[in-house]
C-alpha cells in the first residue's frame, strides 16, 4: 500500500444482472480515478449511478455480478480482497451514505449507541470514550442538542436529522473515502445545503475523498470538483464541475437545457431527444 497511489482506481467496471432474456448490463465499462476530491456522478434514474457506487464496496445486491479490469483502493485490489478484509475496509476506510436513513439505522437502538458502536467496532475504544466521540460527532454534523438526540430512537427524529445522524455514524471511524448516494435528495433545500456544508468541511479538513451520486445537475455542479455524466451504464462525458456549462456531449447539453431556471421567462423547455449512438460511443475518463 503506497500513499501516493490514487485513492481509488476503477477501470472497465461492469455490473450485470441475469434476466430471463440474458444478462442485463447496468454498468457497462466505467473507468475513473479518484484523488482527494469530490467527484460527482450524475445521470438519469436507471443510468447506473448507484450500481457504480455500490460495486466499489461490493454491495451490489444479488444476483448482480461485478467485474472490472481494476478496482483498487489505495493500490489494494478490492476484487481480490477476502471477505474479512472487505469488512474491515467497509466502514473504516470507505463509508457509504444512502438516500433513505430509515433503512440504514437500526430501529431498536438509540441513535447515540449506534454511532458509539460504529466507533468501537473499528477503534476498540472503551464505552465512555466512544460516547464522548459520538457526542462530538453529533455536534460536528450540527445537531443542536447532542445529549438529547443521543438517547432518541430513529423514528423519533426528523428526516433531515436522520440523514445527519447517518452521516455522523458513517464518518466517525474517519474513512478516507465517502460514497454518498443521493444523500440529500429526500431533504429540503435549506437542510440539504446545511448537510452538504458538513460534508464539504469534512472533505477539506480531513482530506477525505468523496463520490457524490445525484440526479441534480445544478447541485453537483456547485458542490463537486469534477463530474462524470452517466447514460445507460456508461460515462458519456467527464469534466471539471466549474466547466459543466461548456460540456460538449449532446446528452449533457440536453439535460442542462431541459432544466427550468428561475431567471428565465416561461416558455417551452427543450426536450431531450436521445440518439441511439450514445449507447455505444463511450468516453473512457
Amino acid at each position: 500500500m503506497t500513499d501516493d497511489a490514487p485513492l481509488l482506481e476503477v477501470s472497465n467496471l461492469r455490473v450485470a444482472f441475469p434476466t430471463r432474456t440474458g444478462m442485463a448490463e447496468a454498468v457497462r465499462g466505467v473507468s475513473f480515478t479518484l484523488g482527494r476530491e469530490k467527484l460527482g456522478i450524475v445521470g438519469e434514474s436507471g443510468s447506473g449511478k448507484s450500481m457504480t457506487g455500490r460495486s466499489i464496496l461490493r454491495l451490489v445486491p444479488p444476483p448482480g455480478r461485478v467485474s472490472a479490469d481494476r478496482l483498487a483502493f489505495r493500490g489494494e485490489d478490492l476484487l481480490a480482497a477476502s471477505p474479512r478484509r472487505l469488512r474491515d475496509i467497509r466502514g473504516r476506510r470507505i463509508a457509504m451514505v444512502m438516500q433513505d436513513p430509515k433503512y440504514s439505522l437500526n430501529p431498536v437502538m438509540t441513535v447515540g449507541r449506534q454511532i458509539a458502536e460504529a466507533y468501537r467496532v473499528h477503534s476498540h475504544a472503551g464505552a465512555a470514550e466512544a460516547k464522548r466521540r459520538a457526542l462530538e460527532m453529533l455536534a460536528a454534523v450540527r445537531i443542536r442538542d447532542p445529549e438529547r438526540v443521543y438517547d432518541r430512537y430513529p423514528h423519533e427524529v426528523s428526516g433531515g436529522m436522520g440523514q445527519r445522524i447517518m452521516i455522523a455514524m458513517m464518518l466517525i471511524p474517519g474513512p478516507d473515502l465517502l460514497i454518498a448516494d443521493e444523500p440529500t435528495s429526500a431533504l429540503d433545500v435549506t437542510v440539504q445545503m446545511q448537510v452538504l456544508a458538513i460534508l464539504d468541511d469534512l472533505c477539506s479538513q480531513r482530506g477525505m475523498g468523496m463520490i457524490f451520486v445525484s440526479h441534480d445537475l445544478n447541485l453537483v455542479a456547485s458542490f463537486c470538483d469534477r463530474i462524470l455524466i452517466m447514460y445507460a451504464g456508461r460515462v458519456v462525458e467527464s469534466c471539471r464541475a466549474s466547466e459543466l456549462h461548456t460540456a460538449t456531449h449532446p446528452y449533457t447539453r440536453g439535460l442542462l437545457a431541459s432544466l427550468p431556471r428561475i431567471g428565465e421567462p416561461p416558455g417551452d423547455l427543450p426536450v431531450l431527444s436521445r440518439d441511439p449512438a450514445w449507447l455505444t460511443a463511450g468516453l473512457e475518463a
Binding site: T190, L219, E264
Partner: peptide, 25 residues
C-alpha cells in the same frame, strides 16, 4: 424572477435554490 421577495424566508428559499454555496449554507 427579479428576486424581489419581501420576506426573509422567501429570500432564503431563493438563495437555497441557486445551488450549493458554502457561505450561503
Amino acid at each position: 424572477r427579479r428576486g424581489a421577495a419581501r420576506e426573509p424566508y422567501t429570500l432564503q428559499l431563493l438563495r437555497a435554490s441557486q445551488g450549493y454555496d458554502r457561505a450561503t449554507a
